[in-house]
Every structure is written in structure tokens, then in C-alpha cells.
Simulated scan of single mutants.
Amino acid sequence: MKKKETIVCYCHSCKHDTRHEILFTENMHNSDDDYWWTCDYSITKCCGCGDITFLTETTEEGDIEYDENGNNYIPTKYKTYPFSPQKVAGLSDLWYVPNTISTVYRETIKAFNNDCHLLAATGFRMIIEAVCTENNIQGKTLEVKINNLCKNDIITKHDRDRLHSIRFMGNDSVHQMKVADINALLLVKEIIDIMLKNIYILAKKCSHILEGPITTFEDFCCLLDEGLRTRKIGDTDILKNLLPQDRRLIKEDRSNFEIILKEKIAEGKYTKLSLCPTPLQGKNQQYKVESI
């Protein structure tokens, strides 16, 4: 039997809401004293592309909501098949993210898009746990682990505070069954996306495409060895001039590496250079090339 001639619902072919002709509708309902619900099952045809869609319109007692004036009402929920439109899209470059994290992430986005907001809030908290595990971050509680993520320079202090907010939300969902506001969940999803991009996706993309700065003393030594191969034994010069000029080395890092280099030379652990006599005030330390 036909309920009405047309309805606006999502078309999986047009990828947006369109007007549909209702070809057939069957109603099922329960109206006993314990709990009532009603659902119309319809077969519809898009008035634009002509594709067939299966539509459910459900109203049930437990879905009470409140308007801006505090008045309660029970909305009708619409779902179309083969699928309804996604509320949020997940990250597209998840192959850069470790599998343990990407698995939790995908399931969390799926829960979000299926209106399982308690599970989504818990899932976002679990993603933080998974990031800590992947980075070997120690701590008896997630609170300590988040702090240690910051102490290990994996995230910034601002990121730390935001992750604690997500932890609070996840705890409320797990322990108090408190359903998070949809706008809060959307913001949390954005924070999680940025974290995964910064830690994994952008890091790996940049390493493949962009030349990054020297960040470890081992790489600094390789760079120094490269520069020494262009010099002669017995040459003396300051460190800056002994290094290749076309490589990216941050000035602050070079100063820190030079402190370590002096210690290694004094201990006999780096033998290609020796320290020249202490320079006069205002001059840089000079080094003598001992081998290349």
C-alpha cells in the first residue's frame, strides 16, 4: 500500500538528498504499554537518476529530544540503503599510520557515522592509548602517558591539553554513560586527525619529498665526515666552515652538536679532528684536521 506519493531522502547514486517517488510502503509497529515504536519500510525511486532505494522511517519512545525551549519531542529517523550519507569522512592516508592505530580509528569513525556516540567518544580515547603504545610511552594511567607524550616531544603542550580533554570525554562515556554533544565529537575528531597527521602522515610524506634538517648526532657526524673529505690533513678552521654549505643544519642544533663533538674529541671517540688551543675571547673554537 502507498503511504504518500513522494518524499525527500538520500540517493546513493546522486550523493545527496533528492525527491523520491514512493513505490511501496509497509508499516510495522508495537504499541503495548511497555514500549511503543513504529516503522515504515519503503521502496523508493529517485526522481532524478531513477535509482531504487530502500528507506526506513522510524519513530520510537526512547528517542526523546528537547528543543531550544526545553520542550520534548520524538523525531522520526530516516535511513536509506544500500547506505546513508556519511556524517564525517576518515583520513584518506591511513596507510602511513600503524595498523593498530588505524584499526581503532576506522571503527571509531564507523561508530560515529552510525550514531553510536558513546562508542565514538570511547574510541577516540582508545586512539590516544594506541598512539602511546606505538611510541613506547610508559605510564600507569593514560593521564601520565599523555604527559609523557609531551615530555618526549611527540606532541606540544597545547596538544597535551587537548588530548586530556578527549580523555575526560572518553572517561565520562565509559564510566558515566554520558553521551557527548555532536559538535564536541566533531571537534575531537578534528584534533585526532591533526595528531595523526603530524605524528605519522606528514612526517613520512616529508621524509620522502622534502629535505629535513639534521636532527641526530650520528647524522651530524656523517655530515662532518662529508665535509672533511674536501679538506687536507693539517687544515685548521672553525666548525661552520668544515661542514658542507649546501646541507640543512639549524644553527641552534649545530651549537648543541658542537658541545657533544668537543666531548667526543676529548674522550678520544672522534679522532678525525683535534681541538686547537683555546681561542681568544670573541673567537670560535678552531679544529685541526687529523684524518679524512
Rank of each mutant, 00 (worst) to 15 (best):
A120E: 05
T100W: 04
I128S: 02
Y105N: 10
T108N: 00
M126P: 00
L94M: 12
A111F: 09
G123W: 04
M126H: 00
K110C: 12
R125S: 04
T100V: 03
T108L: 08
A111P: 01
K110A: 10
V131C: 06
R106N: 11
A111I: 05
T100P: 02
Y105C: 15
S102A: 15
Y96D: 10
G123K: 00
C132G: 04
E107C: 11
K110F: 04
I128Q: 07
I127N: 01
C132H: 11
Y105S: 14
E129L: 07
N99A: 13
T103S: 08
Y105D: 14
T108I: 02
T122C: 09
T108W: 07
L118I: 11
A130G: 03
I109R: 12
D93H: 13
T108E: 12
L119T: 05
V104I: 02
F112M: 12
L94V: 14
F124R: 09
C116P: 00
Y96I: 15
N114L: 03
L94K: 10
S102C: 10
T122A: 12
C116Y: 13
F124P: 07
Y96W: 14
T103K: 11
A111H: 01
I109E: 12
H117F: 15
P98T: 13
R125T: 06
N113I: 07
R106G: 00
E107F: 13
D93R: 03
V97F: 01
I101C: 11
D115R: 12
F124K: 05
A120R: 06
C132R: 07
E129I: 09
Y96T: 10
A111N: 12
P98C: 10
L118P: 02
F124E: 13
D115F: 07
A120M: 08
